[in-house]
Amino acid sequence: MSAESGLSPRVGTASGAEPKLAPRLSIEAKGLRKVYVDPRRGRVEALCGLDLDCRAGEVYGLLGPNGAGKTTTLRVLATLLAPTSGTARVDGIDVAADPLEVRRRIGFLSGTTGLYPRLTPRETLTYFGRLHGIEAGELERRIDGLLDRFGMREYANARCEGLSTGQRQKVSIARAVLHDPPVLILDEPTTGLDVLASSAMIEFIDSRRSAGTCILFSTHVLSEAERLCDRIGVIFQGRLLAVGTLDELQQRTGKPWLADIFLELVRRAGGAADVG
C-alpha cells in the first residue's frame, strides 16, 4: 500500500510469492482458556488451552465449525474478552496486563463491529483517529488517503445508516486500518458480503500482507483460506487440532482439498458427528 493511501508498508513481501516470514511473533497465545457461565447452558469452556502464534507479514487463517472457539479466540486477542487463564501477547503486549495498548496496536473487524449509523464515514474515521491520538493534520491526510483508496469520496458525508452493505464494509475496513496497526484481526470478514465486496476484502487482506501486517482471520469459506493463508489453524471444541501451510496439512492428512483436510482432522479428533 502506498503512502498515498495513508498506510505505510512494513515488510517487503510480494503477494503471491512464497511468504517471507518475519522472525518476530506478532500474536502469541499459550494455554489460552476461556470459561464463562451461560445462564441457559451453564458452565461453558469455549477455549481449552489454545496455543497460537502468528508472525508479522503472515496471513493466518483460523478454520472451524460454529461454536469451535474462533470468535472467542479473536475476541480475547482483541481484548473484548478477558482470558480465564493462559497468556496472549499481541505485538509483544500482554492482552490481560495492558489491554489498552493492545487495542492501540490492532485493527479488528467482525460481523458485529457495526458502524455508528448516525455518523458519516468521515466523522467515524475522525472520531477513531482522534481517540488513537493522531494529530489533526496527519489524520486529515490519512482519511483523505483512505477515502481515495476505497473509493468512498462519494458517500463520505452521508450517514452510515444509509449506506449499502459493501459501502459499510469499506468504511469498516478504513476504520480498522486508519491508525496503521501492525496486527489485523478479522472475524469472518466476508460473511454477508456479495461477490464484489468479498473480492474487495480479499484484495485488501492481500495488500496488507504485502505491507507486512500480521493478519489473523477466521472464516467459513475454505476457498478464501486456500487462496489467502500462509498458514492455517484448524480449531475444534476450543482446541487447535493442527497448524501448518496447506502443503503441510495435505501431507499430514493425505487429503488434497482443504474441506477434506478439515473433516479428516475433525474426524481424528472424534468430532465428525458434530461437524457432520
Binding site: 473484548l80 479488528f108 463491529t113 458502524l115 455508528y116 491520538g133
Partner: peptide, 14 residues
Amino acid sequence: ERRTMETTLLLPIP
C-alpha cells in the same frame, strides 16, 4: 441493538 457495542469497546481508550 445497532450492533455497535463491539465497535465502541474497541476504542483505544480505557
